[in-house]
């Protein structure tokens, strides 16, 4: 066993120093060392998207990436979307539209959707489908997930117009 190395990155807005093996995957460091179990390990081969987290705002499969490669970067997990005990409006939209059944894919789904909405606040159906191709859901049939995302996007229409004016 090689000695552990110290890596530093920001997780959900907080600076984190973690001692981990050089070949340890990001999903393992998040779940086992930082206790952030929102990212799920499903297939371990990048197929299912349950382990999706945002790296500098972009979705990545945390089972396909070494934690050491996150050095100096910003990671957002589902735990970081809203303060403890509260829900982000996008999470609320998932609840209201029945877009959550067993819940295993949900953190990844929401983070993939969040990355899309940050880039494109009012996506087309095609944009949504394309953004979610890497996230599998065996329960909902996807329709309710797409409806939740569209409803959230509609609810921000007024707000993003004001932002644009500034």
């Amino acid at each position: 066993m090689t000695a552990e190395t110290t890596m530093t990155f920001r997780v959900n807005g907080r600076e984190c120093q973690v001692a981990a093996g050089p070949a340890e995957r990001l999903v393992d460091v998040l779940r086992s060392r930082l206790g952030l179990t929102g990212a799920k390990e499903g297939c371990s081969t990048g197929q299912c998207g349950a382990c999706t987290v945002l790296l500098d705002g972009e979705p990545v499969a945390s089972c396909m990436m070494l934690a050491a490669d996150a050095e100096g970067r910003e990671i957002t997990t589902i735990e970081g979307l809203a303060p403890p005990g509260e829900l982000h409006p996008l999470q609320q939209a998932f609840l209201e539209h029945g877009a959550v059944q067993c819940g295993f894919c949900t953190p990844g789904m929401i983070l993939s959707a969040k990355a899309l909405l940050d880039r494109k606040p009012h996506p087309s159906d095609e944009d949504i489908a394309r953004a979610l191709v890497g996230n599998l859901c065996r329960c909902t049939g996807y329709r309710k997930i797409c409806e939740a995302i569209k409803s959230y996007a509609r609810s921000t229409r007024g707000r993003s117009k004001r932002v644009r004016k500034r």
């Binding site: 990048g46 972009e58 990545v60 499969a61 396909m64 990436m65 993939s112 953004a131 191709v133 890497g134």
Partner: peptide
């Protein structure tokens, strides 16, 4: 190619 999560890596 693959998925957004893989294309970003």
């Amino acid at each position: 190619f693959a998925s957004p999560q893989i294309r970003n890596l």
